[in-house]
Amino acid sequence: MTRTGRLVILLVAVLLLGSVGTGAVLYAAHRSGLRDEQQADGPTVRAGSVSLRPTSGRRLLVRNLAWGPHRDEIATVPADDPRGPRTASGVTCLRFHAAAGTGICLQAVHGALRDTYRAVVLDARLHERRRFAVPGIPTRARVSPSGHLVAWTVFVSGDSYAGTDFSTRTAIVDTRTWTVDDNLETFRIVRDGHSSHAADTNVWGVTFADDHRFYATLATGGKTYLVRGDVTARTLTTVHRNVECPSLSPDGTRIAYKKRVKGASPDAPWRLYVLDLRTMKETPTAEGRTVDDQALWADDDTLVYALPGDYGSDLWTVPADGGGTARRLMESAVAPAYLG
């Protein structure tokens, strides 16, 4: 073969290799773009603008758990189409809640030696207003109906409510003055009509009635209580026994909560109940599995809560009156909040 022929073959080979390489890059970029929108057999998730301001339709915000570049971001869907395409905000949270244009986002800060955590108060555009260091792993978060108060609970030690070897810290912040009650265990506890104090007290799972009153769980002596809190008087008054992670209904008449039931596994001890605050009647919901979550009221009749799923957690829904059946509301999602 002549020298010219060898050069021609070499040139053709280089061109072919270049074409293959370019094609591979373009294909990879195309697949990356697809992954930016959708996980295999999962929900469509696209980056976009997310706001906490009122809109023409009711919306559901969640922490998106679908695999892809938007995992752990706060995302939104129309409330009447929870399995529809999700709009991801770019804001990542471990726990989240929002109301009246205020959001609370509990985040991990990854360090070289260990992770730390913080609570970030967000405005209606999901921009940071104020941040607070928190002393442990985030577990619960709530915003008052007015948006003026935010609360969060973290595990100071332990990482599960199932056993007894854990300690929590719960704080409430007034977003108008930035006054911080960083440990609700310092509130005066009124149990069975008498002031009470115990070294093993834990408080967690705030749910707000308004800007003065709230409910939460108090644990002491191996028992749990529903307590009614007063921000101004700085008191916690016991209301009912065997109540964890309470959630106040929109009409203020009932509490959804986790109840420990006899005969259940120590690792899965809870069932989802509803307590009538006037009569103190307890109603078990149709959800027969253990629920380790602070349920959310979608409306006056329906509860939403998280259960383990293929990608972390799925959201489920069940009627609050004890009837009906539990059904999956949304895959790969946790920490819901309804707006509008």
Rank of each mutant, 00 (worst) to 15 (best):
M1Q: 10
G5D: 13
V8W: 15
I9K: 13
L15I: 13
L16K: 03
S19M: 15
V20E: 08
G23I: 02
G23A: 07
A24G: 11
L26S: 14
R31Q: 15
L34G: 07
A40G: 10
G42E: 05
G42W: 00
P43V: 08
R46D: 03
G48R: 01
L52D: 01
P54T: 12
S56M: 07
R58Y: 05
R58E: 14
R59Y: 07
L61P: 09
N64K: 01
A66H: 11
P69F: 09
H70N: 09
D72S: 14
E73T: 09
T76G: 04
V77L: 06
A79L: 14
D81I: 00
G84W: 01
R86S: 03
T87Y: 01
C93E: 03
F96A: 03
A99R: 09
G101Y: 08
T102K: 02
T102Y: 06
G103A: 01
I104M: 10
A108R: 10
A108G: 11
A112M: 12
A112L: 15
D115A: 08
T116I: 04
T116N: 12
T116F: 05
R118T: 09
A119K: 00
L122N: 00
L126H: 01
H127F: 13
E128D: 13
R131A: 15
P135V: 00
I137H: 09
T139G: 02
R142F: 07
S146K: 05
G147D: 00
H148C: 08
H148Y: 13
V150Q: 06
G158I: 00
D159V: 01
Y161S: 04
S167M: 05
S167H: 04
T168H: 04
A171I: 02
A171W: 05
D174S: 08
T175G: 02
R176G: 10
V180K: 09
D181G: 02
I189Y: 04
R191C: 03
G193T: 01
A198E: 11
D200K: 00
T201S: 07
V206A: 02
F208N: 02
H212V: 15
H212Y: 13
A216P: 00
A216C: 00
T217S: 15
T220S: 11
T220Q: 04
Y225H: 14
A233D: 13
L236W: 13
H240W: 12
H240A: 14
E244A: 11
C245Y: 10
P246A: 06
S247K: 01
S247F: 06
D251R: 01
G252N: 04
R254S: 15
A256D: 07
G263L: 01
D267Y: 13
P269A: 12
W270N: 12
W270Y: 15
R271N: 14
Y273D: 06
V274S: 11
L277K: 06
R278I: 06
E282N: 15
E287M: 15
T290R: 03
D292E: 15
D293M: 05
L296S: 14
W297S: 05
A298Y: 07
A298V: 10
D299C: 06
D300Y: 09
D300M: 08
T302F: 05
L303A: 00
Y305K: 00
L307R: 09
P308G: 02
W316P: 00
W316H: 14
P319N: 02
T325F: 12
A326I: 04
R328Q: 14
E331F: 08
A333D: 05
G340P: 02
